[in-house]
Amino acid sequence: MYSQGLIGADARTDETPEFLEAFQNRIDAEEKIEPNDAMPEGYRRTLVRQIGQHAHSEIVGMLPEGNWITRAPSLRRKAALLAKVQDEGGHGLYLYAAAETLGVSREEMTEELLDGRAKYSSIFNYPTLSWADIGTIGWLVDGAAIMNQIPLCRCSYGPYARAMIRVCKEESFHQRQGYEIVMTLAQGTPDQKAMAQDSLNRWWWPSLMMFGPHDGDSVHGDQSMAWKIKRFSNDELRQKFIDATVPQAEYLGLTIPDPDLKWNEEKGGYDHGPIDWDEFWRVVKGHGPMARDRIKARKKAWDDGAWVREAALAHAEKRKARKLVAE
């Protein structure tokens, strides 16, 4: 789940016009680019950064949900949540592997996440305060991610597109289990319904921010579109998400926390109120309520796992040596 509009792309590139034109012709002909193919440096850099941010988001995304595994209200919910969090870990690994085909190492990417150079989706810097948040994350956050990710299955870079196909296949379960949790609460006692509404109130706007800045303010969108890394603009995807989600909230009898939200017959979609971009940039830059905790947890997991990695490598060496002697 959990891709976000790319933050801070750098698509500068210094190749000759002939090279760039030949490359663009391949892209325009819908040819996929594969790992060892010649590609502009800007294309490579944009993809490394985008796939890296995407992978980090999957891994950091395990934390807010993992927070509720031990407190899931039933065995059914617990099994589903465990499976979902495990999927997120898997998605992170598919994506790291896709990024590595571009010549960046897993160790470099991990280092960049832990020392704060690499970004991840701003949504995970919000806390999961109640069980309803687990439902809302599946419904809205995974829902927004699906909107973002389906077009990525047709991304011009082969390994990224293939990883996204696997991810998208698994994602639908996430959204449905989330919606089912929210539905159960919304149809429960008044307290349970209030819990669902409170959760929607807190997650609605951060979910809309997941699509990234407005098209007018997104400086790197054009090049990504031309290279077919991106297929739809941030605002187009955000609109699709709102149009799909509002009826789902209505079905639950929950209210979207946007007094300006109303159907626009002419455009065949909903108009929405202003998004607080100051909050978005604050959170992206690491000032979200949970930003410090998330990186602290990742750092602890990495440091605590050091002896396991070392022992596994030492054991592998020992086995290899023994095998050589036996031969």
Binding site: A97, E100, S105, R106, E111, R162, R309, A312, H315
Partner: peptide
């Protein structure tokens, strides 16, 4: 960071009668 963990390519046979197909890669010590 100490020693890089080696990279492996993964091939899976969906069911008997089909060949193994490349699905992705993984890091592991052995």
């Amino acid at each position: 960071m100490s020693g890089e963990v080696p990279l492996w390519e993964v091939f899976i046979r969906p069911r008997n009668g089909l060949s193994h197909k490349h699905v992705g890669s993984i890091h592991a010590a052995d």
